[in-house]
Design a binder for these strands. Structure first.
Lengths: 119, 119
DNA sequence: GACAATACCTATCAGTTCGATGTATGATAC
DNA sequence: GTATCATACATCGAACTGATAGGTATTGTC
C-alpha cells in the first residue's frame, strides 16, 4: 500500500504515455533526452527511468503513435521520436480521459460545499 | 497499453485509498455504501468494485487508519468505517503527494507559455 | 587507465487493481 | 411460493503497470 516519501511510488497508469506524447508534441526528442525532460518539466515531481521510457516509446511506435528517425552524433546513436497524426488523436483522447478522472477526484477532495476544507 | 473507453482502465495508484479516506472523513460509511458513494461522487467517472473497496478497507483498518463498528440492519450486517486520527494524518500526506504530482502533470499538459494550447 | 556521462536496450519483480465468484438475507415480481 | 434482484459481506487469481536492475558501447574527464 503505497508508502509516501519515495520519488513516485507507482501512482498512475498511462501517465508515462501521456507525458511522452505531450512533450514530443512540442518538439521531437530522443529517449535519453526525454528521461531528463520529464524530470525537468515536472520539477523532479516525476522521475521516470529509462526502463519505463524506452519500452513505452517502442510500444507507441509499434502502435503508430510515434515515428522515429536515427541520427548519430559524436559516435552515439540517437533515436529521435515525433508524434504522428494518429498519435495526436491518441493524445487528445487520453488527455480528455485523464482530465475527466482527475477532475472527478478533485471534486471529491474539495468535499461538499457545506464542509470547511479539510486542508 | 491502457485502451481508452472502458469505465476506468487502471489509471492511478493509491487513488482508491485517497477517495475512501476522503469520503469517510465526511461521515462514516459501510463498504457497500462506499462503492456507490464513489460512483455517485465522481459522476460515474470512477467506478471501483467491491473487489477493490473491501480489501482496501481491511488494509486501512489493519494499518490503523480506519476503525470499524458492526451493525445489523434488517437482518443484514453492515460494517461501518470511520477515519482515525492516524488516518487523518495519512490522508493529509497522500493528498499532498497527489496534488504535487497532478499539479506537475497539469503544467506539462498546459505546455510552455509560447505554445498555443493543444486542446 | 579508471570513471562518469551519454545513449541505447531488455528482463524480471513487485504492487495494484480488475473481474469473477461465493455466501447469505430481505424484498419484489410473477 | 419461488424466482429474481438488491443488499452486504468476502476472497482469489489474472492482468497490467511501472520500478529496479542489469547489460552493451562510446566519449570525455581526471
Amino acid at each position: 500500500m503505497a508508502e509516501a516519501g519515495r520519488p513516485n511510488p507507482n501512482f498512475m497508469n498511462g501517465v508515462p504515455e501521456l507525458l511522452i506524447l505531450r512533450l514530443l508534441l512540442e518538439r521531437e526528442m530522443y529517449g535519453y533526452q526525454l528521461v531528463r525532460a520529464i524530470r525537468g518539466a515536472t520539477g523532479e515531481a516525476i522521475a521516470l527511468g529509462e526502463g519505463v521510457i524506452y519500452p513505452a516509446l517502442h510500444a507507441l511506435e509499434a502502435d503508430g503513435a510515434l515515428a522515429s528517425r536515427r541520427e548519430t552524433v559524436a559516435g552515439r546513436t540517437r533515436v529521435y521520436y515525433r508524434v504522428t497524426t494518429g498519435g495526436r488523436r491518441r493524445l487528445g483522447r487520453i488527455t480528455k480521459d485523464y482530465s475527466r478522472i482527475t477532475g472527478a477526484i478533485r471534486d471529491v477532495l474539495r468535499g461538499p460545499p457545506s464542509e470547511k476544507p479539510a486542508f
